[in-house]
């Protein structure tokens, strides 16, 4: 039984095979009845738009159905049911479970109690492997991953997508650049870990110098709740904003990615530039999640 819990568990060959499968799906080469009669249990203990909808859409495109526990407030969770019990029960109803939960390690716990494959759709500040596969796929659509300079911008301390992507990139020949507001820098142990895995990590303090030396700029949301007041949030957020002016000196092939939702990090005027790939990235959620669902249930 194959669970999808952390991108760290993927070998480079697994990642490349999955991205190849997603590309074939994107080109229309897939069986629309592949998961007919299969049911996906959708357990989301936190709000989500893109991840939940794209998993359900991916399941429907492969001919399968989804059952959804609804919001936490309408489920047995309000009665005090443990995640272990919820997972044990739902694994009797469904052929696979997709789980989002606010606690780190929740998906790993679910694998201990589930009789069907579990796909981690984000556990707290922990892992979100399908998002990382989408990020890699979007980079690969634009250029070969090997040989790229990939910049991570924003909340690199708590942002799970930036950490997951950084770990996945250690499978490739890339240089990772980081730029984050004070106190939201990438934790030293993560940087040390990335370097031990053979990747060069360059920490920046100047946003123009950062932006002009990249092939991929991965922007993450700076969360307002991390700041004591709105004034200090706006002061930081405005100095890390991606604008057409900032990108005027960027490499021609440079692409801007964002896992979305964005708030103030990217000026809407950037949307019209050829660098902007974040909406394409969101669309790529479908072929990647179709490939993952087939991987665990096919």
């Amino acid at each position: 039984m194959r669970h999808i819990i952390s991108i760290k568990e993927f070998e480079k060959e697994d990642i490349d095979a999955l991205l190849d499968r997603a590309r074939a799906i994107d080109a229309g080469n897939y069986d629309r009845h592949a998961l007919e009669d299969r049911i996906l249990g959708v357990l989301f203990f936190e709000p989500s738009t893109r991840t939940r909808m794209s998993f359900e859409a991916a399941m429907a495109r492969l001919g399968g159905k989804s059952i959804d526990m609804g919001g936490v407030e309408t489920s047995s969770v309000v009665k005090g049911e443990t995640l272990a019990d919820t997972v044990r029960v739902v694994s009797g109803y469904a052929d696979a479970i997709v789980l989002r939960h606010p606690k780190e390690g929740a998906a790993r716990l679910a694998t201990e109690f589930s009789s069907v494959p579990v796909i981690n759709a984000g556990d707290g500040a922990g892992q979100h492997p399908s998002q990382t596969l989408i990020d890699l796929y979007t980079i690969r659509q634009a250029m070969p991953i090997d040989g790229t300079d990939v910049g991570l911008l924003g909340d690199l301390r708590y942002g799970r997508t930036a950490h997951s992507l950084a770990y996945a990139l250690t499978n490739y020949d890339v240089t990772i650049h980081t730029l984050a507001p004070e106190s939201l820098e990438m934790p030293p142990n993560v940087i040390e870990d990335l370097r031990e895995r053979g990747v060069e990590v360059v920490e920046h303090t100047d946003i123009a110098e950062f932006a002009h030396n990249l092939d991929v700029m991965y922007v993450t949301r700076i969360q307002r709740e991390r700041f004591p007041d709105m004034a200090s949030y706006y002061a930081v957020a405005s100095s890390y904003r991606v604008t057409p002016e900032l990108l005027s000196g960027a490499r021609e092939r440079m692409i801007v990615l964002h896992p979305l939702p964005r708030v103030d990090e990217i000026d809407p005027r950037v949307d019209a530039l050829p660098h902007a790939r974040y909406f394409q990235q969101a669309r790529n959620g479908i072929p990647i999640r179709m490939a993952l669902l087939q991987e665990v249930m096919g």
């Binding site: 952390s6 443990t82 995640l83 272990a84 939960h101 606010p102 606690k103 780190e104 390690g105 929740a106 790993r108 716990l109 201990e112 556990d123 707290g124 500040a125 922990g126 892992q127 142990n189």
Partner: peptide, 27 residues
């Protein structure tokens, strides 16, 4: 924020590494 610090019916699990004790739930 680790799931092992909740009321779930599990025990904490760590592997002993050179860097320290590694939580097998939350890393």
């Amino acid at each position: 924020g680790c799931i092992s610090n909740t009321n779930e019916p599990i025990q904490s699990r760590f592997e002993v590494t050179k860097k320290g004790l590694h939580c097998l739930y939350c890393d």
